[in-house]
Nucleic acid binder design. Structure first.
Lengths: 153, 153
DNA sequence: TTTCAATTGTTGCCATGGCTACATGGTAAA
DNA sequence: TTTACCATGTAGCCATGGCAACAATTGAAA
């Protein structure tokens, strides 16, 4: 099963290492993006983002959410007074907006490819963090061309 | 910006919690899948999977790779004798094959949507772990319908 | 056969992201 | 005004996944 016969051809070592490095980077910010997006949604929808609600919606215990929110604060994405609700900084809001746009884009692409909405929403939650700008632009072109007519298949 | 006016409507609390739970589960197995897939590729391509090569291709220091491989062994996915190359168990090979098929599927979908091959390969590396069976089937239908004619846009 | 470089193994450190258990603060009901 | 309940904060535990530093083994060159 060498290069001649098989389909298998490994990428070059540095290229592959770079790729996995990028995946690790994306993974590191994925959780922060999810929190920031959720906080923005809660602020828009309920007028406030409380720790308990964040924890319940993330499906984690409240100390877990508290730790992550502290990380958001350290990174200048969120802010809060003791025993009060959580708010986003300017940077946090920008990140939330970008995440929200990308999320909706991925969902629409999946829907257009025939994936049911609830599954599309669920899968997009994980996939969205790994969509590069180039891929995002390709997605937009695809939606512009086929999205408005509903499903493609 | 309530339900009436805006686009924003949060999913129900349990639904959203379930979604994020699924993302966490997928994240937990993502690294194992990547290792198993890489080991299978090295075995097919080079005839052996050595620790140094795995570490270099993953872009990590060798103790990091060693720890992860120990985890693979604990979970019954890989096996090795001290100071020897790494092999996959039956289960590990099955996992590798599934991961490989899904990886190629995601790459082909992205390519068909107009994403350049190298970017498609890179993005697929992160996205593939979050593609559910339902979405995978939709991808296959899409490829069957449009894939053979090259890019869609 | 000896020696030495490369590979593998091990230990111990750090940050992250889960959890439980407990302490503290805030507020509404009694 | 108390009190009791809920929300928030904090401490400490575990596993994961990075790292550097050092130990042990292998195997090839001298």
């Amino acid at each position: 099963m060498t290069k001649a016969g098989g389909v298998r051809t490994l990428p070059s070592e540095p290229a592959q290492a770079r790729r996995f490095g990028r995946v690790r980077d994306a993974q590191a910010t994925a959780l922060l993006e999810d929190y920031v997006e959720l906080i923005a949604d809660l602020l828009a929808d309920a007028g406030e983002a409380r720790l308990v609600d964040i924890a319940r919606r993330m499906g984690v215990a409240h100390p877990t959410a508290a730790k992550t929110i502290n990380r958001l604060k350290r990174q200048g994405l969120a802010m809060s007074e003791p025993y009060r609700g959580i708010f986003l900084t300017e940077i946090g809001m920008q990140m939330a907006e970008r995440a929200r746009v990308r999320h909706r884009l991925v969902v629409r692409v999946l829907e257009t490819l025939g994936v049911p909405t609830d599954v599309a929403e669920a899968d997009a939650e994980g996939m969205e963090h790994y969509v590069s700008d180039v891929t995002g632009r390709a997605f937009m072109k695809f939606i512009d061309a086929y999205g408005q007519f509903g499903t493609i298949s």
